[in-house]
Design a protein around this nucleic acid. Sequence first.
DNA 1: CGTCAATTAAAGATATCATATTTGGAAGGC
DNA 2: GCCTTCCAAATATGATATCTTTAATTGACG
Lengths: 243, 243
Amino acid sequence: MADLIPHGTWRAAKGGGTLSADIVAQIREQLFAGQLRPGDYLGSEASLAQAFDVSRMAMRDALRALSATGVIEIRRGAGGGIRIAAAEVGRFADALAIQLTLLDVSRSDLIEAQIATEAMITRLAAEHATVPDIESLRGILHRATDTVEDGGAFARLLGEFHTALAHIAGNMALAVMLRGILQLLETSYGADTTPARARGVLAKYQVVVDAIATGDADAAALLMRTHLEDVRLYARSGAKESA
Amino acid sequence: MADLIPHGTWRAAKGGGTLSADIVAQIREQLFAGQLRPGDYLGSEASLAQAFDVSRMAMRDALRALSATGVIEIRRGAGGGIRIAAAEVGRFADALAIQLTLLDVSRSDLIEAQIATEAMITRLAAEHATVPDIESLRGILHRATDTVEDGGAFARLLGEFHTALAHIAGNMALAVMLRGILQLLETSYGADTTPARARGVLAKYQVVVDAIATGDADAAALLMRTHLEDVRLYARSGAKESA
DNA sequence: CGTCAATTAAAGATATCATATTTGGAAGGC
DNA sequence: GCCTTCCAAATATGATATCTTTAATTGACG
């Protein structure tokens, strides 16, 4: 029950800028200092308002901002209140999508970013993969061969392949970045994939997995990069560019 | 003055989930649909509350969430109100920092992510660099040689070098991702850099710039990657690992 | 052209009601 | 005696309304 005892002693919010901004800064500071961990209970809206010596409204403003950025989770009802959130890749993907939309980044630039992260993921996967890992990857590709006619199912299995690769690589930062990029790209992928092209993609991934199996990181990364560069050129020529 | 006319016709918020969530969804939807662009004026807090047929508090909740995620900017006073925000790399860096902190990602993983993005940036820079670009990079490195004694100034110029490189590469997605990663790493970099080590780093970057000048993208990317891998090993052995 | 006051609009406080969720106990059957 | 089901009370956020305070811009006047 230790996690039901409210953490932290908070400074009464001073209105240098806005009260809510000060509160947000204090809580984020403790998060980055490692003094707050996912699941930690902070108290109720009302009790926190009292702790920061502000009205419930100012506290709400701060809590909305923290909730929107994924720092806290709010549950209502008895036993509810405010807790430090668990990391959620979906939320990060949202943030990435918003900023890249405001920046008006092109699809081609996104694919280049995908190449960068995925080539490194492939390199790391080749360095770390165990025999069961290889079998898992081959299993996914095998199942994918049965779905080359069904664009949606094929895209789903390909996504599973990329996720499995990121998991084997064991680098959360890269996995999370790739997930965000793929989410932004997924609207364009898969729509115009012919069965013939799907088979070609699978053949390339088979070769990549072979390189991973032999532990040849340089070769695996190079194969993945050149394959995705083909995809990029195909997307650039075939599909209508947005913006 | 066209941008002073409030955009959009909004549906009265329906409380499927929460009112504010519905409002956030509506505005984000229009943003992704390209119907809202940075700088667009949406109205005042009060006028928007009326347009969505909710109380001012519900509207505030939504505006706090949108502001925290960087979708809108709020200015107070005459001529103030709510506008679609300009993209801000700092905000994205924040989002990245929060999620990676909650995930408890190690420094070593972050450097691997840096390697991935920076190797690609170097590759693209080699493909796109003009003669003035090369001169600019050499100028930064030249100025940096005078600051090897001053850890802070040296780190600042090195950051400028990375930023210039990202700019030359011309890929916003990669530039923004790198910025987020470097922001998380910057607390650890520079603290334990000796003048001798600083000179060694500069020598490596000189070689990288030479490769970029000859347009040899493969060589430039490889040099950058191997250099950063050295940095990663140095950080792993030298500094105390966090968590 | 600078200064100052009026205006605008957000920030903040307070009180009240509505609604969702959990908790816990009571009733009833096995 | 124990387990399950159901209902009611307690808890905590969601939402509304109204008011005061503070910050910033605008525009007029000197």
